[in-house]
């Protein structure tokens, strides 16, 4: 195996990993603020990508404004989910909430299929540049943008949680909703905010992915499954852990393809996950603070 091949697997893993990381982060944002695993998470990625791509392809709107509208559409969908469906159901317990998001996921996909049709779409690249060649391995500028974006979003989110009033409210809510409420925090607002944020991250992932891996009305569920795997792998209870889980999953899959077999790529990623859960039931990159 040549060095350039290894490097190529590495690039491939990091690109795919950045995709997973985006969705994993979005999972983590709602999980940490409200304890909800949002099974409609991948649909925000779909909505962002499909809205942008169809505006661009169908109405000739330039790439950047199309992308912004795509992200905004995802954020609105997040608001609808959070305020319209999650908040009224909040008292009904974790299981009901998971099922509500599952139902929403089915509805979003069915609507997208009717609105956008079945054809996959692509967006033109934001950076219309030739791929870089590094020691015989090729790296697409869109991949670099994707990685830069996830790292920037993670850093931004970190600052938001640490240093803003709303962010601190979110953290307090994640620890204990009733205590947060007694401190005068508007819990409903905070949870809705978390959903809008996580949908925005999903939408951002969607518009940035579309030029690299295309998008389609049915990409949502796949994104949900991969993102969820990544989040659990890294530790869904910490945003940074989730992002790390995304990159780890992407790298494991790419290396498995490269050195073992592409057939078992998924199985190896998931096998690793099972083993890891046996040893560290709350994910790899989490501090073991709480004990069940």
């Amino acid at each position: 195996m040549s060095f350039s091949a290894f490097l190529q697997f590495l690039f491939s893993g990091v690109t795919t990993g950045a995709v997973y990381a985006f969705v994993a982060l979005a999972f983590s944002v709602t999980f940490t603020s409200s304890g909800i695993v949002n099974f409609a998470q991948g649909q925000f990625v779909m909505i962002g990508g499909m809205v942008a791509a169809s505006l661009c392809a169908g109405y000739g709107i330039p790439v950047l404004p199309a992308m912004l509208i795509g992200v905004a559409a995802a954020a609105v969908a997040g608001l609808v989910v959070g305020a319209g469906f999650i908040l009224p159901m909040l008292r009904r317990g974790e299981f009901t909430l998971i099922l509500v998001t599952l139902g929403l996921s089915i509805v979003f996909e069915a609507l997208a299929l009717i609105a956008f049709g079945t054809d996959p779409l692509s967006l033109p690249s934001l950076l219309d540049l030739e791929p870089l060649m590094v020691h015989g391995a090729s790296l697409s500028p869109d991949s670099i943008l994707l990685v830069a974006a996830i790292l920037a979003v993670l850093a931004g989110f970190h600052v938001f949680v640490r240093y803003t009033r709303w962010g601190r409210a979110m953290r307090a809510t994640s620890i204990d909703t009733s205590v947060a409420a007694s401190l005068g925090i508007n819990v409903a607002f905070t949870i809705a905010l978390a959903f809008v944020l996580s949908a925005t991250f999903g939408g951002l992932a969607g518009v940035l992915l579309a030029p690299v891996i295309s998008t389609g009305a049915q990409t949502g569920l796949l994104m949900t499954l991969k993102g969820f795997t990544a989040a659990v792998l890294g530790g869904i209870s910490t945003p940074a852990g989730s992002v790390a889980g995304g990159f780890l999953l992407g790298l494991v899959e790419a290396m498995a393809t490269g050195f073992i077999s592409s057939t078992y790529q998924n199985a190896i990623g998931l096998g690793l996950l099972i083993l890891l859960l046996m040893v560290r039931p709350e994910g790899l990159f989490t501090a073991r603070t709480r004990r069940a």
């Binding site: 795997t229 659990v232 869904i236 998924n266 998931l270 859960l277 039931p281 069940a292």
Partner: peptide, 28 residues
Amino acid sequence: APILRLRTVYLAMATLAFGEILITLIRE
């Protein structure tokens, strides 16, 4: 025994992963 030590989402994820691995083995 090993899998039921996990809780909620972690259990869901582990059981889901088990199913997907099995499908790969059947297919291959």
